[in-house]
Design a protein around this nucleic acid. Structure first.
Length: 476
RNA sequence: CGGGGCGUAGCGCAGCCCGGUUAGCGCACCUGCCUUGGGAGCAGGGGGUCGGAGGUUCAAAUCCUCUCGCCCCGACCA
């Protein structure tokens, strides 16, 4: 039906790109690895920003902005940090026609510039905690890029907090991960698994890294948000101390946490189908489109009049599209709005005017149903709410269907090589065993889930003791 | 950086091997008519440094040399 979208079954990767281009979410830019986010895509980002920003403020955070350019020397202050990021940094060497005395890094993340400032601002325990967030762009030079999932420049938010105690710091890192989980599930309608990263997948310079992991429709895992307990690593690197209540000078504890435009990629891959984008209602700035249908002028007049009264009523609750363009036939309009993921379509023709009804189609179900014009506001409201809930549930069922326990290594290997999905396996904690997954199956330990049941078992690689299962999967 | 492919209208392509009037097709776009409950039809129309530079030739999209760029698969990264 959708003639410009490659079916998922034929080429999943191509399908993903088609959804984005046909849905007018983004386009390729003249610069390799960068992308242009078009209004349809940016509208999603705005909803991500609005809702997360509100949730950040509700948890006591404030916004600030730190500069794009970072002195080279800052990057070198934290050993692991520079090791982790240097290869993928873009560096400015010339400014104002002069070769710069000190090179300036375009931020790949802002820990260093922020901690250089925290040093100035933090004197005593009374200055803590410092709960800052910034919305910004960053650049990480990537070899292979994909729209939204991995681009050289991307938009994100980065929270950077400073605390007096390790306990408070750990609580903050976990709290923000929970904020991400709530957001992913209640707004993006993507079920996620919260947990801790293994050391090899940990952020450069962190003590612990936590993440939320989602399953895409090709059964691969996608890291949708991260939160780090940075301990005192950056405080020591930038010499940020505070005088505690007991009069002692102590290093400050830190967290950082972020989500990016990658969430839009997750949203696409979690829900969309072969007809185009599917947006959960809460992620649609324009959740409803009305398509009037007529055959001649008298019909047009009565249909438009009828449809317009509905439009004006619904407009009090939502941003509604009234598509009365005359140059396209209804079928074309249906296809076009489906590509763009509009959650609810109302078709109104002469027969509907006669019967005082409307044809309603939910984007996720694609089934036409007749609804009464009277009480339409409530019906639409309920349908959108229902759709939001059912999309989350559908995604959750998909994930559960494609998650299994494995206790034999050869079976795990077959699973990862064939259909794939989330494999729950025992792991002893040894990085060498972890490497074996990657070498054999190109799969990694995605997360050590918080909610994994305590269970005695043997490491699926080496057979040593293990107290709980971890999730192994191929990932983006 | 290695392997492969490709640059011709906004997009997708043909033409190139074997040089020859005015460079063509589909989609999209504009005008009109006609249509409208799942991507209509007809007629007319606009739009081109043939990636760039140099060379061979009476004549180059086509042959030669150099060069730039993009895509895919690896390496790398997550």
């Amino acid at each position: 039906m959708a003639k410009n979208v490659t079916p998922r079954s034929e080429d999943y990767s191509r399908w993903y790109t088609d959804i984005i281009l046909q849905g007018k979410l983004a386009d390729y830019s003249p610069v390799k690895g960068a992308m242009v986010i078009r209004p349809n895509g940016y509208a999603i980002w705005e909803l991500i920003q609005q809702n997360l920003d509100r949730m950040f403020k509700e948890t006591g955070h404030v916004n600030a902005y730190f500069p794009l350019l970072i002195p080279e020397s800052f990057m070198h202050k934290e050993a692991e940090h520079v090791e982790g990021f240097s290869p993928e940094c873009a560096v400015v060497t010339i400014g104002g026609g002069q070769v710069l005395e000190e090179k300036l890094y375009i931020r790949p993340t802002s820990e260093t510039i922020i901690w250089s400032m925290y040093k100035k601002w933090i004197m005593s325990y009374r200055d803590l905690p410092l709960l800052y967030n910034q919305w910004a762009n960053v650049i990480r030079w990537e070899m292979r890029t994909r729209l939204f999932l991995r681009t050289s420049e991307f938009l994100w938010q980065e929270g950077h907090t400073a605390h007096a105690t390790p306990e408070e710091t750990e609580a903050e890192a976990l709290k923000m991960l929970q904020v991400y989980k709530t957001f992913a599930e209640e707004y993006l309608a993507i079920p996620v698994i919260a947990g801790r990263k293994s050391d090899s997948e940990k952020f450069a310079g962190a003590v612990h890294t936590y993440s939320i992991e989602a399953m895409m429709q090709d059964r691969k895992a996608l890291q949708a948000g991260t939160s780090h307990n940075l301990g005192q690593n950056f405080a020591k690197a930038f010499d940020v101390k505070f005088q505690d209540q007991d009069g002692q000078q102590k290093y400050v504890y830190a967290t950082s946490w972020g989500v990016s435009t990658r969430l839009i990629g997750a949203l696409i891959m979690a829900h969309s189908d072969d007809n185009g984008l599917v947006l959960p209602p809460r992620m649609a700035q324009r959740p409803i489109v009305i398509v009037p249908i007529w055959r001649n002028d008298p019909e047009k007049e009565s249909v438009i009049s009828f449809a317009d009264s509905i439009y004006r009523e619904l407009k009090t609750g939502w941003n509604v599209i009234f598509d009365d363009r005359d140059q396209y036939k209804p079928g074309y309009k249906f296809a076009e709005w489906e590509l763009q993921g509009i959650p609810l379509r109302l078709e109104i023709g002469p027969k509907d005017v006669e019967k005082n009804q409307v044809v309603m189609v939910r984007r996720d179900l694609m089934e036409k149903q007749f609804i009464s014009r009277d009480g339409i506001f409530e019906i639409v409201k309920n349908s959108l709410e229902q759709m939001q809930i059912e999309m989350l549930e559908k995604a959750r069922q998909f994930r559960e269907t494609n998650s299994r326990n494995f206790d034999r290594y050869d079976e795990l290997k077959d699973f990862l090589a064939a259909e794939g999905g989330f494999a729950h396996v025992h792991w002893c904690g040894n990085p060498a065993c972890e490497t074996k997954f990657k070498d054999d199956s190109n799969a990694t330990i995605r997360t050590i889930p918080f909610d994994a049941v305590s269970e005695d078992g043997a490491c699926i690689v080496c057979g040593k003791e293990s107290g709980r299962r971890v999730i192994v999967a191929r990932a983006y």
